[in-house]
Write a protein that binds this DNA or RNA. Sequence first.
DNA 1: ATTGTTTTATTCATAGATCGAACAAATGAC
DNA 2: GTCATTTGTTCGATCTATGAATAAAACAAT
Lengths: 405, 405
Amino acid sequence: MTAMTMLPLSPRETARRRLLDALRREGPLARVEIGQHLGMSPASVSDLTAGLLDEGVLVAEEAADPASGLIRGRPKTRLYFAETLGSVIGVWTGFNRIELRLVDSAGRNRASRHIERPLRNLGAEELMDVLAGTITAFAQETGAHNVKAVGLACQGYVDTRDGIVAWSPVLGTRDLPLASGLGQRLGRPVLIENDASAMAFAITQRNADLRSGRTACLMVGDGVGLGFLIQGELYRGARFGGSEFGHVRLRRSGPQCRCGGRGCIEAYLADYALHRDAQLIDHRPAPTLLLPSEDAMGSIVEQARAGDPALLNLFQAAGEVLGDAVGILIQTLEPDHIVICGPGTRAMDLLRPSFEAALASQTIPELRALAAIHVVESSMDLLTEGVVIQALRELDLDLARLKAA
Amino acid sequence: MTAMTMLPLSPRETARRRLLDALRREGPLARVEIGQHLGMSPASVSDLTAGLLDEGVLVAEEAADPASGLIRGRPKTRLYFAETLGSVIGVWTGFNRIELRLVDSAGRNRASRHIERPLRNLGAEELMDVLAGTITAFAQETGAHNVKAVGLACQGYVDTRDGIVAWSPVLGTRDLPLASGLGQRLGRPVLIENDASAMAFAITQRNADLRSGRTACLMVGDGVGLGFLIQGELYRGARFGGSEFGHVRLRRSGPQCRCGGRGCIEAYLADYALHRDAQLIDHRPAPTLLLPSEDAMGSIVEQARAGDPALLNLFQAAGEVLGDAVGILIQTLEPDHIVICGPGTRAMDLLRPSFEAALASQTIPELRALAAIHVVESSMDLLTEGVVIQALRELDLDLARLKAA
DNA sequence: ATTGTTTTATTCATAGATCGAACAAATGAC
DNA sequence: GTCATTTGTTCGATCTATGAATAAAACAAT
């Protein structure tokens, strides 16, 4: 797995991928059930699964279904991922935090952890050393055996095919070949992805509705990012990155953003922005762009709910920006679904009045009605989940190609 | 052809469509050449063309190549569309103008015309009567024989699959079943499309580069619209429409827009907006939202070029809005290509300084560098050309299906 | 116990699409 | 007239997916 394979897949590879995706989403399935999920004939499913069982990717579940009393015919034999395929580590790097997660080959969580560590001022080599060290330590401490790949999600414009971070507000450097650099240090393949895209992917894996049509997932958290999916596939821009929607400038001379600009969507909505502006109200000392703790954010939200007028203003302005942002998405992309997700949804009650007013004031009602707006409360966990699933999918493909070669 | 077929195409249908598309774009081609264009084996091309020749869709060109002196082997026999297949009429309806074009089955222009006619205040039935009358008169006057279909492009959110104008700033009504209504009156199938999408399609048909990757075509003319293509295929939003990017609100309390809102991109850049604001400068009587003539626009541009400060301010503000708009597109979609097209490009020299400054001030340089910006000077002609090609493509499919049934 | 019913899974022959290779066709070069 | 060269067709092989027949594995009924 060198970064992500973007080659067009053969029909067989497409079918295999769809089958394994269905198993990861739904858990163990019998062959008939797979056929129903994928709209595929039993004959084709048998053919595909025979290959996968042969290669050791899948195993048949033990019968062990004594309570099946009332079912008549031949019992189902469910298929699932073999335990022996090894594990995958998913990582998220933020401005000053690293989240880690270890999963087995089926994507089931085995361990997770997060550590605080400022990364912004590290050089390229130093940064990759720190990341590699952190990942290796995590693997040892959790007793991870047979780690087959590492998936890493981070902010910025990530060339997922070539494994290069073209630009990031989090890292100081540009055009950083992060996948190969980390891959060398860890001795295993590394896949990198934009963090909002990773979360969007995880969310759409959990909800079948969101995998049909066009779904725009606006992630509000450490930063603001957009993951956009068409028919369940992540949209990729030039150089195979996602979107930097969070750095669209909405106000000509708004607050400072991590990207160096002013008035970006993120500069109003991100945790660091709300925390900084809350500090400014209290005339606290040095406001920073660091990601505040969940506790700190929680207390700001509590104070606002309790009626603090200055904080309410802050959330009111943020909600307005969120409404403007969603309005732009609706008028530009006319998605079937808009998902507002990420830790920032914790304050959705505070954002909602001004959000809805701003949205209504600038979108054409007939068009606004076409997009269903979902609020999905989700924590940073979903970031590592998303990138881990993607790494597993790449491993699936590699296994098949290994076999073919 | 009931509106547009959005059903997934069979492999055969996809191959046929690609073949016929290549012929329309490139003109008559020999079978080997088709194979090279499509990356297809000679055997497959022979197979496909045999069917198309049999059905009478294609005919072989007369040899008649006496000047071929220096070529060695068996001469090519070029294939092209049969003349007997009939013709197609393409229509564009603006705020107060109708453009018409008659083409043969290969898409070659046979006649074109435009008439001034305010459409805004007509009821649904009246509007369709006027359009049907205009089209019928045009067909008669040009001696159009065997008109197989009509393609119509208009502003607004057009459900291309079902043939419904969900919303339009030009028409008074909403959810207008324009394709079926016109189809009944004309006794022929009618395909409708958003006008910016139609122009984007026409432009990408002419330039192979723009058909790979993601291309955002911003059309500036009677209004402002966006046609967005991914790998040469038009992006479709919910309900199979395109984008209403022109009605993204950029300034909170900007000038009045045709959509009823304020500060939309269109309200600064569209011909009607520039013309209105120019009239306001001169304290002329009633400023209107009508589309001015090309002469009127030309004289405004000339006065500005001559140094009229108030007009220069107008174009400076418009250029800034254009820069903001392109900036949003870059940060949101990271397209490989951005095309600025439409009659509005006539003033590109006046717009460019503030356009580039605004673009630079709000986009991340590394990301801005990923998108190639093209200015394509194009008139309203390309609108009807785009929709006519689409109608012809639908007819191609219908022919095949007719044969299959 | 035996037979039938029901559901699951496999096998096999078939169909559609594409392609490589061999072959046929049409011309200029010599 | 023969050869070289390029175009176009035919044929068999491969790959993919499917319907139909068949086998397998259970429960139900007698």
